[in-house]
């Protein structure tokens, strides 16, 4: 019985155009003791610096930082540095690469998501937010095939709807929610699975 309750271990998020506002909204709903690491790819200009981590840390209670290579993942929010792909190793540390752009993007959401499957398998929650291309759709398809949970921003609430639409078209996603409900839903879902797990 206990095995049937999925005790999630990580959250991965992909976003692009309009993403800074959307990420702020999701993260602001989470308390400082949120029990899972959150690893984010937001498409950025290649020469932008670490300002995104700084902005997001002012919008929420969580610890937010730019990802360092070989860093061990703890309960914090990690942002991919501009112009590098961010990947998760199976020992649950972070690594970076300058491999070619994927879906015209570096960092690419697909690259993060696909590496996350090896590290977390079905213990993974993936979220696709606003964006103007289809990066992430292959990733969510693979995450679903491996038993993970996928939440997509309701396209009409997205500043750019191509990315959520592509994700929805790629697979049977678990939940489609307006932006302002994503953070609260994520929190409730994670808390619930933990409570049930303790009870069993």
């Amino acid at each position: 019985m206990k095995n049937e309750i999925n005790l999630f271990e990580a959250v991965v998020i992909g976003s692009s155009a309009g993403g800074i506002h959307a990420l702020s909204s999701v993260l602001a709903a989470l308390p400082s003791e949120f029990p899972l690491p959150i690893i984010i790819v937001q498409h950025l200009h290649p020469h932008s610096d670490s300002y995104l981590a700084h902005i997001l840390s002012t919008k929420c209670e969580l610890k937010v930082k730019q990802a360092d290579e070989k860093e061990t993942i703890t309960n914090a929010v990690y942002i991919a540095p501009p112009n590098y792909h961010l990947l998760i190793e199976e020992d649950r540390s972070l690594s970076l690469s300058i491999d070619k752009h994927v879906n015209f993007a570096r960092p690419s959401v697909d690259v993060l998501f696909e590496s996350a499957i090896y590290a977390y398998q079905d213990k993974l929650i993936a979220i696709i937010l606003t964006g103007a291309n289809n990066d992430g759709s292959q990733g969510v398809k693979n995450i679903k095939e491996n038993g993970g949970y996928v939440i997509v921003q309701e396209p009409t609430t997205a500043e750019a709807d191509a990315m959520p639409k592509a994700a929805i078209a790629a697979t049977k996603v678990d939940k489609i929610l307006p932006l302002e409900q994503i953070g609260p839903y994520l929190l409730a879902m994670v808390n619930h699975s933990r409570r049930v797990h303790r009870f069993l």
Partner: peptide
């Protein structure tokens, strides 16, 4: 080598 990107390649 780091395995995650090696696997991708």
């Amino acid at each position: 080598y780091s395995k995650a990107s090696l696997k991708r390649r």
